[in-house]
Computed example of a mutant assay.
Amino acid sequence: MPPVSVSRILLGLLEPQAQHGYTLRQRYDDWFGASRPLKSAQVYATLQRLDRDGLIDLAGVTAGEGPDRRMYAITGSGVVELERWLDEPEVPDVTGTRRVLFAKVLIALSSGRPADVLLDRQRQAHHARLREMRVRRQSGDLIDQLDADFEMYHLDADLRWIDGAVGRLDRLAAIVLSGSTDGA
């Protein structure tokens, strides 16, 4: 899955009302930061790019105890870009983890290593992550539950792939070791 578009999410968070960068970061982390919280520097760098590109404007500055707090608002062009992003379906993609796992299986087989062992370890790691997600789903709010469900369904698909791969390792090893690329 491609990384989440922080810039588009910030546009979406700004659409209802102008906000400070600090507030945007808090909202982002509350909704999307469970696995990867946003760093303040990334928020402000993204806001600078959005401003440069005409998608947001500086809506005001308030003095505080520390540095001045800048308030940002989405522009008409920002709304158009947000609508384009929301209307565009995501391209189904195999995550980097799955691509790496597939590569590890082929490399293990081509070097005579036991691919079933690495798949068993991966299965254990997936089950451990499933347990974490179940706890999160049971203890979290509705947003956490929905996010945990999304990950759990994908982990389940990975586990089905692992089981299918284990069942074909002997045939796959023969193909890989023969140097054939036709998948016969």
Results as ranks from 00 to 15, higher is better:
154 H>S: 05
17 Q>A: 12
1 M>E: 09
11 L>Y: 06
157 A>T: 04
70 R>S: 10
32 F>T: 00
53 D>Q: 13
49 R>N: 09
108 A>Y: 09
170 D>K: 11
47 L>P: 06
157 A>M: 08
94 V>L: 14
177 L>T: 12
15 E>R: 15
162 I>R: 09
45 A>E: 15
152 M>V: 01
45 A>R: 15
69 R>T: 04
87 D>R: 14
49 R>P: 00
161 W>E: 03
107 I>S: 14
8 R>H: 14
63 A>N: 11
81 E>K: 15
159 L>T: 01
95 T>C: 11
143 I>C: 08
13 L>N: 11
8 R>N: 12
152 M>Y: 04
87 D>N: 12
23 T>M: 06
113 R>K: 11
127 H>T: 01
11 L>E: 03
180 S>H: 13
106 L>C: 10
156 D>M: 11
24 L>T: 01
149 D>P: 00
145 Q>Y: 04
57 D>L: 06
24 L>E: 06
136 R>M: 13
117 V>Y: 13
148 A>I: 03
47 L>T: 10
9 I>L: 14
30 D>W: 05
74 I>W: 04
119 L>K: 07
52 R>K: 11
87 D>T: 05
151 E>L: 12
146 L>P: 03
12 G>D: 03
149 D>Q: 11
1 M>A: 08
150 F>Q: 10
163 D>R: 14
162 I>S: 10
111 S>C: 08
9 I>E: 13
47 L>R: 08
76 G>I: 05
71 M>T: 09
126 H>F: 15
178 S>Y: 08
161 W>S: 00
168 R>D: 13
97 T>R: 11
157 A>G: 05
131 R>K: 12
60 G>Q: 07
161 W>Q: 04
83 E>R: 15
3 P>T: 09
105 V>S: 06
7 S>P: 04
7 S>W: 03
149 D>I: 00
108 A>K: 00
152 M>Q: 12
77 S>V: 02
82 L>F: 08
140 G>D: 05
95 T>H: 12
60 G>Y: 14
40 S>D: 08
120 D>K: 10
178 S>P: 05
45 A>W: 07
183 G>I: 02
177 L>S: 14
35 S>D: 07
36 R>S: 10
130 L>T: 09
179 G>S: 07
182 D>V: 00
42 Q>Y: 04
2 P>Y: 13
172 L>C: 04
113 R>F: 05
31 W>I: 06
115 A>H: 04
63 A>I: 00
162 I>Q: 04
173 A>P: 02
61 V>S: 15
23 T>W: 10
41 A>L: 07
177 L>D: 09
35 S>V: 03
126 H>Y: 15
